[in-house]
Write a protein that binds this DNA or RNA. Sequence first.
DNA 1: CCCTGATTCGC
DNA 2: GCGAATCAGG
Length: 225
Amino acid sequence: MEWTDEAIARLRDLWSQGLSTAEIGRQLSITKNAVVGKAHRLGLPSRPSPIRSRKAKEGETVEPTPRRKPAPRKTAKEVKAAADQTSVVSKKPSSGAEKPKEALAAASVEEKKKEVEATSHIVKKVVEAAPQTVKAKVVEKAVEAPAKVVPLTPPKPAQTSRPLPPPRFLGSIDRSTRRGPACCWPIGDPGTPGFHFCGATPLSGKPYCAEHAAIAYVKIRDRRD
DNA sequence: CCCTGATTCGC
DNA sequence: GCGAATCAGG
């Protein structure tokens, strides 16, 4: 990474805006390690760290989180040697070709963009992640940018007088292998035998899977007649 | 497991 | 100086 004046300025700016190191990294197309490393070197103010957040009790000398052993780190040579060996000996059968990091990063960025376009959830997410001091700022920024979104109510189950049967999730079929949350998009008519909820793995932070989230969250301008 | 930021240390 | 590897907390 060539730390040009501009790159450094950008880093400083984003850093001061309270964006996460990973987010800054994405915007600069570098890793969060590079970001935090450079920030550290630049003497930028530390962010509230998850780990060191040990209460600085008054008088109590908080041990700087006694980090453990320096951890033996592989040398580049060792890494290369290992790589050579594995590539010759036991090439992974079908793990698929690993995407280059750039591709991954790009994909990640694309994903993010889509998300921002489609929903405002990301805004909330970002805001939540941001330190208090910058929340307002972030909101202000974000509000004008992404399209407004309205969560449409999913098909309203016709309410019956008798209690509904216990909802069945398709996901419960393989509950043994996947215990996570389940998409709660209703399928079929409540009260009828076939009624169940989707049960697929929901998008992070949403009650619906990708397929149904796409239906549930519709851009306002797409609803206009 | 995902995320986060901080630190270490081979390069 | 750089940043991947690693750590550790949520």
